[in-house]
Design a protein around this nucleic acid. Structure first.
Lengths: 354, 354
DNA sequence: CGCTTGATGTGTACCGCTTTACAAGAAGCG
DNA sequence: CGCTTCTTGTAAAGCGGTACACATCAAGCG
């Protein structure tokens, strides 16, 4: 088939139909006081009958503020696809954007094309603001958006005064998690992270150590190595006397609980696992993951609100959203009596909760 | 902070810098033959130095074809979020779109706002084409895009000649799956679907019956009821003497294999499960899901190519992409010797593969 | 060598809408 | 009742490009 475009209806058609000038239509549609309520109604009726809406491109050209948010994600298809966080984020952005009449432009890029895409989208005025995710230390995008003069908000730990951040309050979260684990008798807990370059990783590392110190729990760190032959086995082997881990990524936590028994580590009998994000995946795997739910939808909403203010030229301050909530499921249990049994025959120890 | 927009550079700035007229710049940037290669180079250099890119909105206003694809998904946050297919689709669309210089506008809507959003986005010329997913029987969007004259392509079974479809070849897929199951001794297989309203569901139903008939396997159908208290238990109870199921949705298949043992059905000892989509989730759950991988990325690429032709005013025919591939994992095994044992004590039967 | 060509550019009229004057009649007022 | 002030509307100038028609000028040619 061929797309046969019926002549598109313009503001003049509406004006003619309502018996007014095009300017009147414009004023009516922009809530300007230059038109009486009665004629405004007539104009709206005419527009309705013709099914007309102001052409987005045209209004942008004539100086009307923007209505499009750019989300550029520098991830491989794979790491994007297996992070349920992004689904939640996308879904969460959609609603507040729609309320504002904005739309979301999304793309995945390779790391080395990233800046290029920001420049292009901004230069073409394809988008009017950016939402920055996966912000790294010394992230080049921060100076970039400043240089461009592009309104931007980042999700994660604040990095730079010039770009407001929407942060999920984490302080008490580590305390909560370690209280939960401490209450189960765990004394040595490790934090597992991938993506060491991300800005929020460092912030969380500090909070984790701090909370551990306060609660008398020995904390350590372990990096997830996706290049290993069997990343789960490799990680578990490195864990030493740790009896519980807090995993930054939900998908990694899920892989760990699913695969650990197969390499001789029973979860949660020998090792408790907490995921630092929550989604349907956590309740899918067995044992179900104890996870820390984050208010993703609210973060999205907050970010959009901030962005909207920036685009209007107002100032916007970084904001914190709270609502971290520990959802206790089946991957955490009392610490084994004698630690460091990871490599025993799985059948032989089945220490149950006291 | 406040966004202080540095004066934006326009085509005239570039023209001045290159010592030519604005038209020359335009021609140079649109590969028009009105400008010599040497001056074109000079112009490009000037544009580079000023970091200029043609304003997207302006070119659209002045009749330049569109560069934006609309994807409107009528799903709840939840059903969107737990379908890994969408992640693959989004990721898959991104690359071919970027190659074309297009961008993707995404939104989630409630079913009753759906048409409204199509009208709005098209009316505002915010997008230049639509990709239709989750197409239902008598889907109102098909007449709608026709009426609007909007280029559109749908993913799934062809429904209407006016809207080209990109279809994943399914014919041999059912044969392959049933061969696999038949070879394991299964004689009664059910197909489990949610979303009975989707257009491709009916098509698959027929193919399934057909393939069953050809291979002497008794086929039946079972609907997934998400409103049930325990949908998995409820489904399994309804299965009768069936020893294997083919589940239309990967996330449902995953729930089934994860939860079945907890309601007394061993997978795959008592029941084999095949998922009709594949993603990382299939290898996450235990037992790992035997799944039918679909060429999602290639479908996306094909759809984009079709769309691009439509936007250029060329005709575009429906296309089929092949590449369905059965990935055999751990959720399929030989059929139990005596069927219909679903409600036995799980410990008591552990019939192993012969 | 005069004239047709082809290669390169430039002027200019839009595209559809916003916006800043500015006009015209109604209303307020001393 | 003449003049100022609102109210309601219109005209016209852009916004940043594109595209068509036309101007140049050097080369090609009989």
């Amino acid at each position: 088939m061929t797309a046969t475009s019926p002549k598109r209806v313009t503001i003049s058609d509406v004006a003619r139909r309502a018996g007014v000038s095009p300017s009147a239509v414009s004023h009516a549609f922009n809530g300007r006081p230059n038109v009486s309520e009665t004629t405004a109604a007539r104009i709206r009726a005419a527009a309705d009958e013709l099914n007309w809406r102001p052409n987005y491109a045209s209004r942008k050209v004539s100086g009307q503020g923007g209505r499009s948010l750019g989300l550029v994600i520098a991830r491989s298809r794979d790491t994007f696809g297996r992070d349920p966080f992004f689904m939640r984020l996308l879904a969460g952005l959609t609603e507040p954007l729609a309320d504002l009449g904005w739309s979301l432009s999304l793309t995945l890029v390779q790391a080395d094309e990233e800046e290029q895409v920001y420049r292009q989208w901004w230069g073409e005025q394809r988008v009017d603001a950016f939402l920055l995710v996966d912000v790294r230390h010394d992230d080049p995008r921060l100076p970039l958006v400043e240089q461009l003069g592009a309104p931007a908000v980042l999700l994660g730990a604040p990095v730079d005064d010039a770009v407001p951040a929407v942060t999920v309050a984490d302080e008490s979260a580590f305390a909560t998690v370690l209280e939960h684990l401490g209450g189960l008798g765990h004394r040595r807990v490790a934090r597992v992270t991938d993506a060491p370059g991300l800005a929020h990783t460092r912030a969380r590392d500090q909070r984790f150590s701090h909370a551990g110190a306060q609660q008398g729990i020995a904390t350590s760190f372990a990096a997830w190595d996706p290049t290993a032959d069997d990343p789960v086995a490799e990680l578990l082997a490195r864990l030493g006397g740790v009896t519980a881990i807090v995993v930054d990524s939900e998908s990694i936590a899920a892989q760990i609980v699913a695969h650990a028994p197969e390499v001789g580590v029973q979860v949660p009998a020998q090792l408790s696992v907490v995921a630092w994000e929550d989604s349907w995946v956590s309740s899918l795997v067995r044992p179900r993951l104890t996870a820390l739910d984050a208010p993703v939808e609210e973060s999205a909403r907050t970010a959009v609100a901030l962005l909207e203010r920036l685009v209007r030229g107002e100032a916007a301050e970084s904001q914190t959203v709270s609502g971290r909530r520990l959802v206790v499921r089946d991957s955490t249990a009392p610490a084994p009596r004698s630690p460091s049994q990871h490599h025993r025959d799985p059948d032989r120890d089945s220490e149950e909760a006291p």
